[in-house]
Amino acid sequence: MRKPHIRRLGEGITLTVLAGVILFLVPSQIDRIPGMETEVSPFFLPTVLAVAIMAVGIALLAQAFRKNIGEGEKEFPMSGGLRVLVSVLLLIAYTLLFPRLGFLVTSGIFMGIFTYYFGARSILKIGLSMLLVPVCVWLFFEKLFRIPLPHGLIF
């Protein structure tokens, strides 16, 4: 038996499972409307979509066993995945602190962290970006366009 293309196999399985999850959620996550005909019920489109996603997933699964599939593609293209994971966590922390400390303070702190994380090492560069960027964005939204941003405990 031909060795399957792992990446394509993973993509096919993911889509098929996702479609299965949607089909599983359909009865519990959609309010039933008594007396509504099948094709106009709120169940109709999500069910059709789930079946279509599953069909695409199965087609990808079938492709995984074909010859010359994914030539030149990396098997697991997640290099730098840890850096991305850390930045997602930092972004969540930023969002958690955002309403508590206020836009200016939180953005100043995270501007510094992200600038350092991106590779900047000049203290002057990092310091200036921490100070200037949040103030400019804040002035732009709050003063120029009068769009309110959260004010926290400090400012």
């Binding site: 995270f110 501007m111 992200f114 600038t115 991106f118 900047a120 970006s129 960027v133 964005v137």
Partner: peptide, 10 residues
């Protein structure tokens, strides 16, 4: 770009 992308995320 070390300055640009943090600005983008803010």
């Amino acid at each position: 770009r070390a300055i640009l992308f943090p600005i983008v995320i803010i």
